[in-house]
Design a binder for these strands. Structure first.
Lengths: 149, 149
DNA sequence: CTAGGTGCAAAGTATTTGCAACGCT
DNA sequence: AGCGTTGCAAATACTTTGCACCTAG
């Protein structure tokens, strides 16, 4: 029976919503619960598919709105902060990215300046490492001033 | 005068195309040259905008095709391998991603298992680090077998 | 000469928005 | 009761595709 664990999730979710200052609705509750039990990195469509089996009348737009709300509130994260459109890497030097979580600006930082030199070769499960791409997430100087908190 | 440097780029580009086994066309040449002088992480639209000032008749579709060709041939990279659609991170533990460059599959790896613990705090330019997101790019076990080379 | 490349327009996918009805607080 | 939330349909953004014509090799 998942009843008890869902009961627990309901409590957690109410608390989360209170903190974030948003309303607790049945749709949000169900999207939250389904996300909690989904593994991997589901797309809005996949979430929609599962949620619809519990709330047949829900719309995809609501799922999108809810996911965005969760991300803004810090309840969940998105896999990549720069997923919007195709972007070409024009910098040929080995480098990583400073990504501002506020304004989404991306700045390059030379690999050696960042000083991260992880192990090469084969990982335990047979994954063959080619290279590392590091996103350093944080606040750029500008956003630290404008959003002091 | 940029004439000389462009002359040089023309040479480089011909060599690149030869290696990749693709034809050298005026459109590809110009897209290549513009990408070389653009900074940051341009979108196809931005590239189109610049290229159009030199080849007014070029179509956005050609720019897309050309960018994809460049990426496949390894002439340029894309900023994020998982930019397609919004994906929700359901794994609450601190972790990073093993991304297969062949089949695009993403697997989680615990942060401590990867053993990468970079410095916290403030970077030289005032960027305030919150966390690191690492993509380990390579070939998963399956793709190593199917594409031995 | 011919295989591959281009431009156009149309189609496809992903996501957002305006608005009337509805439900939480 | 009032404002935020929902569902719908339409709009928008981004990207791909089919096809006739063109061009590099």
């Amino acid at each position: 029976m998942d009843t008890e664990i869902n009961q627990l999730r309901t409590e957690c979710f109410r608390a989360l919503c209170e903190t974030a200052g948003i309303a607790v609705t049945h749709q949000r509750q169900v999207v939250y619960e389904e996300l909690c039990v989904m593994h991997g990195h589901p797309s809005p469509e996949e979430v929609y598919g599962r949620v619809r089996s519990r709330i047949p009348s829900i719309s995809l737009a609501t799922v999108y709105k809810t996911i965005h709300l969760f991300i803004e509130s810090g309840v969940f994260r998105e896999v990549s902060l720069h997923h919007g459109t195709l972007r070409v890497e024009t910098n040929a030097r080995p480098h990583h990215h400073l990504v501002c979580t506020q304004c989404k600006a991306i700045r390059d930082i030379d690999a050696e300046e960042l000083g991260l030199t992880p192990a090469e070769g084969q990982l335990s499960d047979g994954f063959l490492v080619q290279r590392y791409a590091v996103d350093v997430l944080g606040l750029c100087a500008g956003c630290q001033k404008s959003a002091p908190q």
